[in-house]
Design a protein around this nucleic acid. Structure first.
Lengths: 197, 197
DNA sequence: GGTTTATGTAAGCGTCGTCAACATAAGACC
DNA sequence: GGTCTTATGTTGACGACGCTTACATAAACC
């Protein structure tokens, strides 16, 4: 019925969806504009009517990811009145994204999509998600100096992010042969990330 | 004089050197076999006489990096008899590689060069450099359980690696506007990475 | 000196991102 | 309702890339 309309309907949205699916299944490098176009029954040049280039499309996908992450943070904090528990659940939300959507996570945090020239929507969404982390740490340090809160947030975030990246990059697998399970390690990482100092 | 010899002399070594230079100046993605071949005055197919594919060449560069890193660890430990100091200097050696050779660091720790199918020399060199970290942590925990030492090594390493990656990926720059300098943050990261828990 | 082997070249395949020139459909205006 | 404008498609191409196959040359070895 809808065979070969000249106009697609909402190609822009369809491209974002397809790009996200590709990112989730194979990471940022698995996204080929030509592939996406072909799978949507559209010519290879069609995507350029909606995105200036490949990076712009991926930026849109990444921005969506940051917005969802920010919402997950907000939820974790709304559901837990104890700031320590809320902070731990916020960290868990970050780990949840990483382990449930590794490809998207990689696009958001490991690709160079957020370099100079990144579109404002992406920059804003990324900054806003950062604010969620900062807020959760601040709640556990009432009356503390802003610089101290930032330091704690950054070092804690570094611990989480580093562990995830090392695991997903296969850099750790070789060294967990002993009685060290991933789940157990994860709790140790949470402890370290949220610990004082 | 040496104009246009048919045989290059030592193309294999020249390719590794050129690839390393390219990696250091622009990261793993900046390495194009065609570019390297052209800059060495050699046909585009010549590199395939020495490396099965692009990944094999990059693996060689990465393996060199891991070996140098292992030597830097060993030096830091040989020069400091106090285990705590030695551990901190070992961590500094890791940060040194990251900040002085960011492109090489990215190849070694953030690219997918160390996935399944990585050549033995690379796997061995990476494992050996890991041993250097493990050794330095173990020295600060005499009589401790092996699992505990591993946990501490991994979480500490995660903190270091995560911070470096976030900084180099430009994810942190936006959040250091306040009275937070990079050097200061670096000491805080070292404290956290080497701290107990 | 002749043969084998290592190392180079030439030409081409398929993929990719991207662009310019053109075609068509949808919506606005009279 | 017909016309004009604009949004959104298509076709065909360019240049760069990794990689391969078939052939050429030089070095090494007996």
């Amino acid at each position: 019925m809808s065979s070969r309309r000249y106009h697609h309907g909402d190609l822009r949205k369809a491209l974002i969806q397809a790009a996200r699916a590709a990112v989730e299944s194979g990471g940022p490098d698995a996204v080929s504009l030509r592939d996406l176009a072909q799978s949507l029954q559209v010519s290879t040049a069609a995507p350029y009517r909606h995105f200036t280039d490949r990076a712009a499309l991926l930026a849109e996908v990444a921005a969506d990811g940051f917005e969802e992450l920010g919402q997950a943070y907000a939820l974790a904090q709304a559901n837990n009145s104890d700031p320590r528990v809320a902070a731990r659940e916020t960290a868990r939300a970050y780990l949840g994204l990483a382990f449930q959507h590794p490809g998207l996570f990689r696009l958001m945090f490991t690709s160079d999509i957020l370099g100079p020239g990144a579109p404002p929507r992406l920059v804003d969404a990324a900054a806003s998600s950062w604010e969620g982390l900062h807020r959760s740490v601040a709640a556990t340090m009432p009356g503390a100096d802003v610089a101290d809160i930032k330091r704690r947030t950054l070092t804690g975030w570094s611990t989480l992010y580093g562990f995830i990246s090392l695991v997903q990059g296969g850099r750790i697998r070789a060294f967990m042969t002993e009685p060290l399970t991933e789940a157990e390690l994860l709790e140790a990482v949470l402890d370290k990330a949220l610990g004082e100092s």
